[in-house]
Design a protein around this nucleic acid. Sequence first.
DNA 1: AACAGTCCGTTTGTCGGACAATTTCAATTA
DNA 2: TAATTGAAATTGTCCGACAAACGGACTGTT
Lengths: 262, 262
Amino acid sequence: MQEHEFSRIERAPAYRLVYDAIEREILSGRLRVGDPLPAELQLAEQFGVNRSTVREGIRLLEQSGLVERDGGKRPRISLPHYLDLASSASRALILHSVTFRELWEASMVLEPAIAESAARNVDDAGLAELHANIDAMDANVKAFEGSAEADTDAFVKLDRGFHEILAKVGGNRVLALAHEPVTSLFIPTGQIILQRLKTYRRVLDAHRHIYNCLKDKDAAKARTWMHRHMDDFRRAYELTELAWDAPLDAVSLGITQATTYR
Amino acid sequence: MQEHEFSRIERAPAYRLVYDAIEREILSGRLRVGDPLPAELQLAEQFGVNRSTVREGIRLLEQSGLVERDGGKRPRISLPHYLDLASSASRALILHSVTFRELWEASMVLEPAIAESAARNVDDAGLAELHANIDAMDANVKAFEGSAEADTDAFVKLDRGFHEILAKVGGNRVLALAHEPVTSLFIPTGQIILQRLKTYRRVLDAHRHIYNCLKDKDAAKARTWMHRHMDDFRRAYELTELAWDAPLDAVSLGITQATTYR
DNA sequence: AACAGTCCGTTTGTCGGACAATTTCAATTA
DNA sequence: TAATTGAAATTGTCCGACAAACGGACTGTT
């Protein structure tokens, strides 16, 4: 006898339905971004469920970035900024034991492309921002060469900042989104390398070269310099004798710490 | 009288602290993946808060992918699969009115790189999977050319599947993650183009060429063919006279529909 | 031994009500 | 007009309760 295949019966809990309903209202524009969310009691009445159920639904919205709470004020409708997703992406990649090789190969694809499009799209404001970053890094490097005590932390932040400004200037949000987890995952490795090999000046010089290419709107040269810059990173990585295919360490990345919320 | 400036007091709500605490336990490995979450009452006792508060915290975990519910069973600890993030990424990009130009430029960067690394890393299983995909598409195309009624939907799914298999075969999860939102956002555009220009066979042929490059482990050629394939897509897009810089339409992407959960 | 049926403790989903703390907003006062 | 105040609205949290579903243990049938 032929057995009939039944499709699984799904019973979504009410709080999920609340989530879906409100999400739909937001995405369709009937609830506008920036507006405060209707009061919980009001929602409970409209949906015909208890306030607790509504609250659970709102928690889902909150975590998905569609609702933002500022202190004890009324929660507001908001659009999740695409870069906010990057931290989740980083976490997921870490938890799946992504290797440095994967990270570096991806950045060899992304960074030159970003540099290229940055050179094509950069404007005065972008150049100024990059210049400020380079100045700050310059001061930082000079401080290093003077004293023994080095603020590696600040340097790495500036380094990351430079690449992020480039991604922003490039104007391609898809690439910027793809790029963001990479830069954030590079941070701990960058710190190790800097401390061991003292490559501060070399990094700064590379950034200067890239900046100049942008000023000249020379996309091809910007790509080349970025390529060289990233390859430098690889060479430094090899010199420190870190393993290519070992998964990035969760602990050194500080993801075991509580996440900070703005 | 000089008024002292107090820094803002931040009081995270208790449900957020619950979320943080449990997240920490998971990320540190003290709660292992696959294990059921402790009972709500138990958690409430341990944290010294009410069960409702615990439940709200669990909703946050749920949405962040760290806890998975299967029917009415005990929720389990789980790791968010990195590709699961892609749908949130797609949504965020849509909501920020990303343009087709950005999407296409990003894919011109990602797809050839993926094809290249796929050619380097492909194994027999991967080749078989790609072959199956191509066979299915072949059948689909033949059906088109026989009857007037075309199953564009199935074709586009297969098309997307081919590119996703490539990304998987390439073995770089960072690139795969970056790539995923792009393919999913291309779907509606792909459907429009196919219906208007009937480019089925041309797509299939391109996939065949790429497949052959992979079989020969010719990375450079795989890159070239993919590049050509994507450029074809651009040309088709231009022929349909769709706007380059218009934001992708949220409605046609179906993101106003309730999300499906597995 | 394999299987269906039954019972029961546990756990989740949902409800109703309650109250303190904080925000909102309009009326009041300086 | 601008600052203040006070009441109403709203959120965060707690408590207690109950139905429904699940997980096992136990039992009886074939």
